[in-house]
Structures are given as structure tokens and as C-alpha cells.
């Protein structure tokens, strides 16, 4: 894929070229939004808003990492939504149990029905633990740890995305990891055995 050529065409108003870029980066952008927001629906909205904003402002893109540029847009969209929620807190909607007419308290309704029960359990438990701990972080810390540890960016790229000095990135990342360690300590034993073994071998 000629990314530079697609960007140039998109800057001239070629929507098809831009949509090819969307198809390449939509998983990455959606994951960033999902980790920031913690909800699939909000993540979809933030992702769509981010791509619309990216298309409207693509003429302001002056080169560099297109991935970083997109991640900055979606991170800002998540910041805006989180600030709006802070001003007007709402009760999250969960599906009603048709038998007991009560809301599900866990996220098991989000499980992909195609997965085996074990796989679904592992994914759900890991997702729940990580997402719970991530949501406990302040948004600024959360954004940095997602960019570096989940998206795999280096400090310089992360600093460019959140427009923060490199020293601040280092500090925020260290404090975020410390908080995550404390948060995950309680659920560490609940994580799937296979996952724990693979971690130990990596370490």
C-alpha cells in the first residue's frame, strides 16, 4: 500500500483513498478508543468521530507518522467524551435478564458466541481485569500506558500523540504501571493459568 500516495489523494478530496486508509487503521483506532472508553458503543462513536474529523482536517496533516496523527485524533475524541461524561454522569445501560428482569452485573453478555467457554472465560476475565484497572487510572495516565504498552509506541511517538514533553511521558508511564501493578495484584491469581505461565516465561 502506498500510504503517502493515498494521503496525498485524500488531501485532494479523494474519499476512496481516505477510506482505504480507514480500512488499514480502523482496528488500531478502535482499540485505542475501546481501552480509553471501556465500552464498545462509546468506542464505536469515538472511532467514527475520529475518522470524520481526520477526513475534514487531513489537509492540516504535515507528514510524519500517520498512525500517530490518527491516534492523537481518537485520543482527543475520547478525552472530549470523558470530560462530557464527567460533567453529566449517566448510568450505563446493560441488557435486561429476560427471566429475572434484572440487569446483568457482569460483562458476559459481551462474549463472542463463537468462542469456546474456556476461551471466552479467559478473554473475559483478562479484559475485565485490565479494563477495570485501566479505568481506575486518570485519563492522562491511561492514554500514555495504552499508547506505549498496548499500541507499542515509543516515548517520542507517545509524546507527539498527547502533545506532552518526553519527561512527563516517562513519569506518567512509571506511575501508571505502579498503579496497575497494585490494581492487578488482587486479580492476578484469577487470570488464566496459561496466560500466567506465558508471562512468567516472558519475564
Amino acid at each position: 500500500m502506498d500510504e503517502a500516495g493515498l494521503i496525498r489523494d485524500a488531501q485532494k478530496g479523494d474519499l476512496t483513498a481516505f477510506n482505504r486508509l480507514v480500512l488499514v487503521y480502523q482496528d488500531m483506532v478502535y482499540n485505542q478508543a475501546y481501552r480509553m472508553m471501556g465500552e464498545a458503543e462509546s468506542a464505536e462513536d469515538a472511532t467514527q468521530d475520529a475518522f470524520i474529523s481526520a477526513y475534514k482536517n487531513i489537509r492540516s496533516y504535515r507528514g510524519g507518522s500517520f498512525k500517530s496523527w490518527l491516534l492523537r485524533i481518537v485520543t482527543n475524541a475520547c478525552y472530549d467524551e470523558l470530560r462530557r461524561r464527567k460533567r453529566r454522569p449517566t448510568q450505563p445501560l446493560e441488557p435486561i435478564d429476560q427471566e429475572n428482569y434484572e440487569e446483568f452485573e457482569s460483562a458476559r453478555w459481551m462474549v463472542d458466541p463463537g468462542e469456546s467457554p474456556e476461551q471466552a472465560l479467559e478473554r473475559t476475565e483478562l479484559d475485565r481485569a485490565l479494563q477495570h484497572c485501566l479505568e481506575d487510572l486518570p485519563p492522562d495516565f491511561r492514554a500514555v500506558v495504552i499508547l506505549v504498552d498496548i499500541q507499542g509506541m515509543d516515548y517520542t511517538e507517545a509524546a507527539a500523540v498527547v502533545k506532552t514533553p518526553l519527561g512527563t511521558i516517562k513519569s506518567r508511564l512509571a506511575r501508571a504501571r505502579l498503579r496497575l501493578r497494585d490494581c492487578l495484584r488482587g486479580v492476578w491469581e484469577l487470570l488464566p493459568v496459561a496466560f500466567r505461565l506465558s508471562e512468567e516465561s516472558d519475564v
Binding site: 474519499l15 481516505f18 477510506n19 480507514v22 480500512l23 480502523q26 482496528d27 483506532v29 478502535y30 482499540n31 475501546y34 464498545a40 464505536e44 472511532t47 467514527q48 475518522f51 470524520i52 477526513y55 478473554r123 483478562l126 479484559d127 485490565l130 500506558v145 504498552d149 498496548i150 507499542g152 496497575l180 496466560f195 506465558s198 508471562e199
Partner: peptide, 15 residues
């Protein structure tokens, strides 16, 4: 965090 499951986009976000 690096091994956390990646979610695929639930739909296409083409404009």
C-alpha cells in the same frame, strides 16, 4: 498489557 486481546473493529468505519 502487551498481550491483552486486540479487538477487531465491529464494523467498517469507512465514510
Amino acid at each position: 498489557l502487551g498481550n491483552a486481546p486486540r479487538r477487531r473493529a465491529p464494523r467498517n468505519f469507512t465514510l
